[in-house]
Structures are given as structure tokens and as C-alpha cells.
Design a protein around this nucleic acid. Structure first.
Lengths: 239, 239
DNA sequence: CAGTGGTCTAGACCACAAA
DNA sequence: TTGTGGTCTAGACCACTGC
């Protein structure tokens, strides 16, 4: 096993819940039992269980044990960093991505502020539409700093920019701030989307950071009102 | 100190960042240094730093140290469980809550499904409007199972239901699933909100769980489009 | 190379729940 | 009282960063 011990245990237990070997409402074996089964220390088991609890698989109850939660109701793996590609894989019906604009620009002041860069920093601008059942309902506008992503092609954008960054470039996306608001439609929205008479769009603004805490991407995802849906699974923090 | 050691360290370090003693971009002392300073073990320090990193205060960098992040940009403490009372405290201008409906009902099938209960379970129904600057822009509909909250009064609803549950009843709210969608206005929305001509509302559906993993509350928070804003701060999970 | 954070261990004591 | 999870310790070795 190259993988960390606690991650391995996490995945094995998570698989047992997905496969129904552990049923919702049941208690999983205690930490001491698991430590014996896996021939490891209790702290390592606890790391795996903490991960399971953070990802919504179990709920730990002091003095009782860890109960299996009903994950069938949770649609997204967990809040936040869900890329369009992951989302598309869960949809039924035809899903297509089309690159509408692609090129290098110099950021104007609004973008400079969002990307925390200056006017000289070359920036990739990618505009894509996402269609479900031949209706264009999402307009994605991506801005990526060239100093982090030197070579980007239209081909890559047709697939998944995230995959390219993580798998080809070996960079690690570590966290993102997300903001959701509703805005009036712009001319661009009217041009690229099948709005069906809607006058507003839901705008998801994403600030994506790399492993080393540097901001490298700003994304606006503009959704037609009736096709927008966001699921979040929040825990209390200081637990 | 009654509080946990690691939580105490967490709060002390967080305060130093809020007060600007640790500046964004700087490295905080290493885990070994902190362990000496606080006369504790490194694992305990690591617990505190993990909390700081999960709450967006720092970013840990292997081989280098932990850098202080710019938290001034984050408006909400962290994703998710922000109650109206917390939200109101951050607003400028007059903020008022008004209880429009209050009483006990028997849940119809839709509610039975949302609350995972049956038709016999008495349920509190509370409808409140929230106004900013004398404009009613949020309609909150709360449904709480009476078996968990036996005594609820209109007085309590005027303040904060959450505070009552946690402080008076001693129950602990542990996590919540949240779903955000846009819906057409209902007659109820038109009656209770100052809609300013908007035809849709942003609906935040909250499923609130207690410490022991039982679902006890379902809430719909209906926001006028132009006054809705949601901020999320997401990390990659398996870190 | 020395110093950093990441993982892991084998103990210990505690607060809590259930019988 | 027994067993649970929560906290804490004092070590150890590793992978990575920087010089």
C-alpha cells in the first residue's frame, strides 16, 4: 500500500457503507475494535473516522459509538468544489460543452481586483456554454493567470480545465471561496444562453486557490434561474 | 482553564490574526516552537492548527510552515450554518423580525417526507418575515417537531429559535443540509414580502439535525432575488 | 544539510451513555 | 461498572523545502 493508512481505512469503510454492508442507523465497530482489526493504533482509526464524519458518512456519539448516516439523500459529495465535469456525470440526458471565446487578455481593473494581480499579468479568458438536452443554460466565464498556466488550448477547455491543471500540470487545487448572488441578465447572457424569457441569472463566483495559497483563477458561472441548484452539507466548525 | 487546550490555543492564535499581530502572508511560528511556547505536545498544536486551517485562517505548507491568510475578504465566518440573528448583527441599518403565523399543525405528506415523520407527529409551524430598512425581503417558514421542542412561544420566535434550543433546552445542533434553488413566487410570498415586481424568490431549504443525528427541523427561507447573497468557503475534503 | 509539516504509535486519563 | 468516543503525551520516522 502506497496510500496512507488512514486514507485506506477511510476508503474501505466508506465503500462498506456505499455497498450497504453497513446500513444507515447501525453502529460501526468501535474505535478499539477497528484498531485491532486493522492492526493499527487508535489515533489512526480516529483520523479515518474523523474524515468519514466530515464527509457525512457517519455521526460520532460520545459514549455510544459511530452511527451510519443515510447518504442516499446527499446528491453532491460535499459542499463546494464540484466541477462541471463531475456534475455532468451525474446528469441524465445529453450534456455538451461549447467553447465560445478563447484567448489571452490584459485584465481590466475589476479583474485585477478579483485576481489580485496587475494590468501587466497576461490572463486567459475562456467563455463556455453548457447545454442540457440541447438547451444552453449555463454560461461559464473563466479567467486564469498565465503565470500559473502557461499553455492552455481550446482542446483542453472542451474537456475539463481542472483535470488538466491537476493531472497534466501536477498543481493541486486546495480551496475556493464561492459567492452566490442573482443578477440581471447581460447582453452576453442573452447572446449565449437560451433564457426562455427569464430576466435574471444566478451567478456563482468562484475564487480558486492553489496549494500554496496563491489565487490563480476567477470564475463566473451564470445559470438560468430554473436550472440552478446548489447543495451544501455543513457541519458545525469547532467540533 | 476549563476549555480544551487545543481550542484555547486555536482561539489565542485566531485572535492574533484578527488583531493583526500575525499579518497575512507571514509565517506563524513552527509547530515545534509553538509546542514549546505552550508547553504542550506537538499533536495538540497540530489540532489547533488544523482547526485554523479549516476555518480559513492559515494555509499549511509542507516543508515551509503555516502562512496567514487574508481573512478580511471573508464576510461570513464560514460556510453554512449562519442563523438570521448572526447575519443581522453584521448588517447596517434597522433590521426587524415579525412573527406572521405561529401554531401547531399536523404535517401533510410533503412535510412528512421532509421531516421524515408521520401524520400524527405534532409540528410547530412558524412563519416570520425579516425586514431590512423597512423592506420585507425574507420570508422564513420553520417546521419543528414537537417531540423535540415541547414548549415554544411566540416570544421565543421573535428572538432566535436557535438560541432557545441550544441555550435553554441544552440541545446541540450538529449539522445541516442546505439546498438552494429558485422558485416562482407563491401567493404567500406576494402577501408577506415587498417583492418590488420580482417574479421569483431564492429558496434556501435547510434540514437541521441534532447532535444524535436525528432530523428535527425543516426550514424554508425565501429571499427576494436582489437581496440574496450566499458565501461559502470550501476546502478539498481528503486533506 | 537542517527545519518544516505529515503520519503513526502505544500508551494515559477523561466525560459520557447504557445496563 | 463497562465500554464508548474525546483529549493529550512523548516519542518516532517520513517527505518535502530551502540553503
Amino acid at each position: 500500500m502506497k496510500i496512507n493508512k488512514y486514507k485506506h481505512i477511510y476508503e474501505e469503510l466508506a465503500a462498506k457503507m456505499k455497498d450497504g454492508i453497513f446500513q444507515p442507523g447501525e453502529l460501526i465497530p468501535s474505535e478499539n475494535e477497528l484498531a485491532q482489526q486493522y492492526e493499527t493504533s487508535r489515533e489512526t482509526i480516529r483520523k479515518a473516522l474523523t474524515l468519514l464524519s466530515q464527509n457525512g458518512y457517519i455521526q460520532k456519539l460520545r459514549g455510544k459509538g459511530s452511527v451510519v448516516l443515510d447518504t442516499s439523500r446527499a446528491i453532491f459529495p460535499v459542499s463546494g468544489l464540484v466541477s462541471f465535469k463531475e456534475l455532468a456525470e451525474q446528469m441524465k440526458g445529453p450534456v455538451t460543452t461549447r467553447v465560445e471565446e478563447f484567448g489571452l487578455i490584459k485584465p481590466e481593473p475589476f479583474l485585477q481586483h478579483q485576481l489580485q494581480c496587475n494590468a501587466k499579468d497576461d490572463t486567459w479568458k475562456v467563455t463556455r456554454t453548457r447545454a442540457f438536452d440541447d438547451e444552453r443554460v449555463i454560461l461559464d466565464k473563466d479567467f486564469l493567470l498565465k503565470k500559473f498556466i502557461p499553455d492552455l488550448t481550446e482542446e483542453i477547455c472542451k474537456d475539463s480545465i481542472y483535470s488538466y491543471i491537476e493531472q497534466e500540470l501536477g498543481l493541486t487545487i486546495s480551496f475556493a471561496k464561492k459567492e452566490i448572488v442573482v443578477e440581471s441578465c447581460t447582453e452576453e447572457d442573452k447572446q449565449y444562453l437560451d433564457l426562455n424569457g427569464f430576466l435574471h441569472v444566478v451567478v456563482v463566483k468562484n475564487y480558486v486557490y492553489l496549494d500554496d495559497a496563491s489565487l490563480f483563477q476567477y470564475t463566473e458561472s451564470r445559470h438560468r434561474l430554473d436550472k440552478f441548484r446548489f447543495v451544501d452539507f455543513a457541519r458545525r466548525q469547532t467540533t
